[in-house]
């Protein structure tokens, strides 16, 4: 077992253990903070797969953006002071059976399928340069569409979350 394997198992353990905390913890604050470690673990997995740009975007966007957004959501939708932030679960047993079936089926398919692996390809030192080139050539249309989607989504989110939207509309009428 060489260093690569040890690092892989470390990051896999961090990812799965904290994902377990996210899913099974009763306290939603614990879940939100465990999600932080899940995202870091996944970023480590990306580094092991020679995806340095994605790993950094993962940390910037997920940890810096989405997780902070989630925490804001938790803080704004729970009465922090007087009620404990427990979240209920339902139908645990059928859900466990269903999820075990899904996991077993997926792992079985992954194990049985004869994946074609290209060996002996040396990974480039960085991927950012070639990725940027791809976004400007092969994927230029999806790239532009994604930017419009982001713009629309952020404008829409700001519009939806505004508090005084309804009274204003009534006043205009």
């Amino acid at each position: 077992m060489n260093l690569y394997d040890i690092v892989f198992y470390f990051f896999a353990f961090v990812t799965l253990a904290s994902a377990g905390v996210v899913v099974f913890s009763r306290n939603i604050i614990y879940s939100a903070f465990a999600l932080l470690f899940t995202f870091f673990g996944v970023a480590g997995i990306y580094v092991l797969l020679n995806a340095d740009f994605i790993a950094v975007s993962q940390i910037l966007i997920y940890v810096g953006g989405i997780l902070v957004l989630m925490l804001f959501g938790v803080m704004l939708t729970n009465k922090v002071i007087d009620v404990e932030m427990k979240t209920g679960t339902l139908q645990t047993l059928p859900a466990s059976v269903l999820v075990a079936l899904i996991a077993g089926a997926l792992c079985g398919i992954f194990y049985v399928t004869d994946w074609k692996i290209v060996r002996g390809v040396s990974a480039p030192a960085t991927t950012t340069n070639s990725l940027g080139e791809m976004f400007m050539t092969t994927y230029s249309l999806p790239f532009e569409v994604a930017s419009i989607v982001l713009l629309v989504a952020l404008l829409g989110a700001a519009m939806i979350a505004r508090k005084d939207r309804l009274p204003q509309i009534k006043n205009q009428k």
Binding site: A12, A19, V99
Partner: peptide, 30 residues
């Protein structure tokens, strides 16, 4: 692949068992 399969299953479990909408979102992120 197996790591991602387990992570996917945990996410599905979170989505279908939790009642808090924000927990459902966390499952979707997983």
């Amino acid at each position: 692949l197996i790591l991602s399969a387990i992570l996917f299953s945990l996410g599905i479990y979170g989505v279908i068992t939790r009642r808090n909408a924000i927990m459902v979102l966390m499952g979707i992120e997983l």
